[in-house]
């Protein structure tokens, strides 16, 4: 199979009824000493067939968000308020059996070191069968046939069903895991850093595969990663997360040319260019805040180059008031006090 490298996908209009919608979601990690608010009032919707990228650095809460959508948060983490809506219905109200259906049939997940989450002493085919029979009434034979189809779908020879995970390369294992995530034809697949541990060439192959599968099967993707340059290539829409909040959300094309939030601009300026002139990278000074005691007002203000105190009124808002997401152009929202005069 040959791969061709092509340009970014066309912008997709988010449908009127999104597949998954988060409304003011708040997730806390509760311990005896302190409570850390990992996700603080996030609203995000993902339309059918849309690839939404969620970018942020370590500790911004993006993985917690993914786990919350998947309803796999374990104590001490818990959803304190807000809703996760699937097809309009609040997932929190699901019964246990409905929740089991929800997980994997409606929404499935591919984790970062997912290739290490394969059982090392079971053959790949058996793991597929196990997973399918846990969710559907299907005979072993039929399940194996389905598993073979899924492997071919992700570009692996059907005969590899009999292989053990260690006999496959890292990239192949990741593709197996993606195949398992697609087995029950979910409407949304959450991918949390699926290619971070892989080499750049394998990463390119996997991304290509995901895009083809997505075009063929029509599922939506929530792609969580720290690599913004990846998202600029593969996502329709990108949301930037910082300190538990979404600070900017825009179609991928707009984000590259018209990023408004200083954090987004800083992030974009942190990637050394592969071609073109080399200027001194600035990065972003300082470090992400401790979420158990975040800065007052705009959480980015200690690191922001526009928080200088020159404009007294603006400065007062920057340190005192949390900025709200506001529309600056169609489909483009920013949470920054500079956007509101």
């Amino acid at each position: 199979m040959t791969l061709t490298l092509d340009v970014r996908p066309d912008v997709v209009e988010a449908g009127a009824s999104p597949v998954v919608a988060l409304q003011d979601l708040v997730v806390d990690y509760v311990s005896r000493l302190r409570t850390t608010r990992a996700v603080d009032g996030v609203s995000l919707s993902i339309g059918a067939g849309e690839i939404v990228g969620l970018a942020g650095e370590s500790g911004c809460g993006k993985s917690t968000l993914g786990n919350a959508v998947m309803q796999v948060l374990r104590p001490p983490a818990r959803i304190s308020s807000g809703r996760v809506l699937f097809d309009g219905k609040d997932v929190a109200g699901h019964s246990r059996s409905e929740l089991r259906r929800y997980r994997w049939r409606n929404v499935s997940m591919v984790f970062q070191s997912a290739m290490n989450s394969l059982n090392p002493v079971m053959r790949v085919g058996d793991q597929f069968v196990d997973m399918m029979r846990a969710h559907e009434r299907v005979s072993k034979k039929d399940a194996l046939v389905r598993a073979g189809e899924l492997l071919e779908l992700v570009g692996i020879d059907r005969r590899r069903l009999r292989a053990y995970p260690h006999q496959l390369s890292g990239g192949m294992r990741q593709r197996v895991v993606i195949g398992m995530a697609l087995a029950l034809r979910p409407e949304l697949v959450i991918m949390d850093e699926p290619t971070t541990a892989l080499d750049v060439v394998v990463q390119r192959e996997i991304l290509q595969q995901v895009r083809e599968l997505q075009a063929e099967l029509g599922f939506a993707v929530l792609f969580i990663t720290h690599d913004l340059s990846l998202l600029l290539e593969i996502a329709h829409r990108i949301a930037i997360m910082y300190a538990g909040e979404i600070v900017e959300e825009a179609p991928a094309a707009s984000l590259r040319t018209d990023a408004r939030h200083p954090y987004t601009v800083g992030l974009l300026g942190s990637f050394p260019p592969l071609h073109g002139p080399i200027e001194r990278l600035t990065g972003i000074p300082g470090a992400p805040p401790d979420l158990s005691a975040p800065p007052s007002g705009c959480r980015f203000h200690p690191r922001c180059q526009y928080c200088t105190g020159e404009d007294v009124a603006l400065h007062a808002r920057q340190v005192g008031e949390r900025p709200k997401l506001q529309v600056v152009s169609p489909g483009h929202r920013v949470a920054c006090h500079r956007e509101t005069p």
Partner: peptide
């Protein structure tokens, strides 16, 4: 190179 506020 960068003035860092120590995060201690």
């Amino acid at each position: 190179t960068i003035e860092l506020a120590p995060v201690l």
